[in-house]
Amino acid sequence: MATTSTRLPKRARREQLLDTALAIVRSQGTDGLTLVTLAEAAGVSRPIVYDHFGTRPGLLLALHRRLDERHRTAIAQALQEAAATADEVARVLSTAYFDCATDMPELSAVSAALKGNPEMEAVQHESLDNYTELMAAALLPYSGLGPETVRLRCVGVLGAGEALAAELNRGRVSTDDAVTALTGLISGGLDGRTGQRP
């Protein structure tokens, strides 16, 4: 159904559409999100939605990128406020990792809806690279290891975090225990840490 809506600049319209898409996923799950349901919920014509996203997978990929960016921004902000010790940085990273699972369950739902999509694989690799870079930069000052070794350990820790998140989602571990376990894995991998920034 075509409606008359306030004319927004393209970027602002895209943000409005993604806000609306997120609200649909929260209330109806990813199965309820299509280009048609988005147009109706946002009060815009279908061509506007198609112009922004092209296809349903295009919409889901855009939503995934947005949620992923919000999560990384929250982690970066938490790191800025963390005390300058290795254990505190490890705790902040672990807490922020699991906060995503509880505060943004839509990210997992959108990922699941895109399973098997070839573009999603590239997006997941990009996301892993971004998280690894963020984590390695935060931890490197506390380690006597070289940058590449720290990066590889971060890749391993993120794999462990994914496994712990699966346990958390199955109700087999509490959030506090998952945070403690991941914090221990991060801290244990920082050979030669100084504990304080120079």
Rank of each mutant, 00 (worst) to 15 (best):
T4F: 15
R11D: 13
R11M: 09
A21G: 04
A23I: 06
A23M: 08
S27L: 08
T34P: 04
L35F: 05
V44A: 06
H52M: 10
F53C: 00
G54L: 04
G54Q: 01
T55E: 11
P57M: 04
R65D: 08
E69T: 10
H71A: 02
H71W: 04
H71G: 00
T73S: 13
Q77H: 12
Q80F: 05
A83C: 02
A84W: 00
T85G: 15
A90R: 08
R91C: 04
R91D: 00
A96C: 10
Y97C: 10
Y97Q: 11
F98I: 01
C100H: 08
D103N: 04
P105K: 12
P105Q: 13
L107V: 00
A109D: 01
S111C: 10
A113R: 07
E119I: 04
A122G: 10
H125L: 14
E126C: 01
S127F: 06
S127Q: 09
L128R: 09
L128K: 09
D129I: 04
T132F: 07
M135C: 10
L139P: 02
P141M: 05
G144E: 13
L145T: 08
C154H: 06
V155D: 09
G159E: 07
L164C: 07
L164Y: 11
A181S: 15
A181C: 14
L182F: 10
L182Q: 08
L185A: 12
G189D: 03
G192D: 01
R193K: 04
R193W: 03
G195E: 05
Q196Y: 11
Q196D: 15
